[in-house]
Amino acid sequence: MSKPVTAPVTADIPRQPVDWLPVALPLIVAVAAFPLVGNPWTWLTLTIAGLAMGMIIFTVSSGLMLVFGLMDVLNFGHGAFIALGAYVGLAVLIPLTPWVEATSVLLNSAVFALALCAGVIVAGVVGFVFDRLLIQPVYGNHLKQILMTTGGLIIVEQLIRAIWGAETVSFNLPASLRGSWLLGEAAVERYRIVALGIGSAVFLGLLLVLTRTRIGLMIRAGVENREMLEAMGYRTRHLFVGVFVVGAMLAGLGGVMWGLYLQNFTASIGAQINVLIFIVIIIGGLGSTTGCLIGALLVGLTSNYVGFAAPKIALFSNILLMLLILLWRPQGLYRVVDR
């Protein structure tokens, strides 16, 4: 490509004002919560716990952000991939208990990575089948999508109960991920720092793919005008199958992480977090990766602060948060898709 083409002609480019306010929201919430919590070390512990919880919620939500936000598929069965991820992670960790309990960081990391990979792969494969059997026949019809995907969620949950039983399962984190680091008087759980790292990597990866690659361009263009993309020579069906599978894989990854975060769960682990995921996506704005991240961080922080300061309204806090955000910005924090 010739230089004059690639060189930005900055003087004439209409500048898009960067909307920083939503980015500052988690900080504003954290600062506002400080007087309610009182003790600075407790506040720091809650803040790190909230951010880690937010990052895990972002990881499980990012898949639905792609599928619902970008593809306009109301997938109520997203929780199925989360539950699958959690149980497949369990299926890897239990037989490899010696690696889980070993004092070697290498063995602990290996079994953790294996659990993550297995969760991602199984969720991806089931996601492909889910898309072919349940999603494609009802593409473009929201009511049927809700019915079909809810049915899919029930089927997957029952299969999980048939394989792993209906009882609550519990297991340990790999040895080196247990316990806390002390930061002054604040206890920072190791696993939460790992969750922060993985969530950040997922966010950066998604952002890079969507904004810096040709596939990302095709996804963003297809979301806005699928018909035009086809008239330009691209097959969007294959593209959207890929997006659905990636969405399921991210849910699988998040499922393993969420399962390890809870350490006790049942086959309903996915269904239980489904509502929270929709709240995050609606807060963030349909199709926005950054909005989804901010929404997840807000939910994580609010849950922790409210759970500490006013436990009685903890269950209601996320709905209240969504209500306030939508009163301020009815389309969510960042809107990518007009719908």
């Binding site: 361009l217 963003r220 806005e224 035009m228």
Partner: peptide, 24 residues
């Protein structure tokens, strides 16, 4: 017109080049 409004002018044209390369 069917332009992709969320994409830049450059991205719209890059996407239209099926070969993946813009001819200077």
């Amino acid at each position: 017109m069917g332009i992709f409004s969320d994409l830049t002018v450059a991205e719209n044209l890059r996407l239209a080049a099926i070969s993946g390369q813009l001819d200077p």
